[in-house]
Amino acid sequence: MKKSRFSKLVFFLTLVFLFMPLFVLAVYAFNESKNMLWTGFSLVWFERLFTGSRNIWRAFWNSILIALTSAATATVLGSLGAIGINWYNFKLKKYVQTVSLLPLVLPEIIIGVSMLIFFVGIDLHLGLLRIYIAHTTFNLPFVLLVVISRLDEFDFSIIEAARDLGAREHQTLLRIIIPMAMPGIISAFLIAVTMSLEDFVITSFVSGPGSSTLPVHIYSMIRTGVSPVVNALSVVLLGGTICLVFLMRPFFKYIAHE
């Protein structure tokens, strides 16, 4: 039985490759000195992070605000869109399908640049509003895909039965379609929140001065070199990420689907 010794080796080396940088980062968050030379255990960088870094936390709350609002908007619009695309045939269907999936496949920088040029053109200068619009836009395709894959799974006859029994469109929508699509809708929302929290490239283009999200702020900190406060922040974020992934575990099915 030597069938997968090679792939096993590659897989475990890949895990080392994937985790080693994060591990080093986390260990050096507890280092006393400012550079990557180990001098002793210390929590000074965490102290600095939680007490002396108001800008980081302002950016953090911006990120949370944008993530929740843009994910919510994208989830509502995208779920309705998914229902329409999945169950009806109409004139502009191909158009909506194509255009709404395109943001998914173009490199981020193209979306960032075109939105920046657009916002300047319509004279929209509110940084947070720009970021909210941009994030909703790139989140819509994810919501569409995830909710459509959930809708694909269930039996159309249930809806026909509801209609035959006299349910109106909004009753069918609220009592049958949405409850049944709920796992898909929730996982779409979670993916959208993650995507929004994660985005740097598009945000850095559309955000003006004075409004930054956490990734944009981190960028401004690491551009000038290593800063242990970022290490401490990474540890906090890593913990948060692991919790979030744990919450998302039941929804993996739909993510792996795509």
């Binding site: 509502v76 109409f90 004139k91 502009l92 158009y95 255009v99 709404s100």
Partner: peptide, 11 residues
């Protein structure tokens, strides 16, 4: 046919 109505916001 409510398809267009559903997809209008996204579109």
């Amino acid at each position: 046919n409510h398809g267009l109505l559903y997809t209008l916001p996204t579109g």
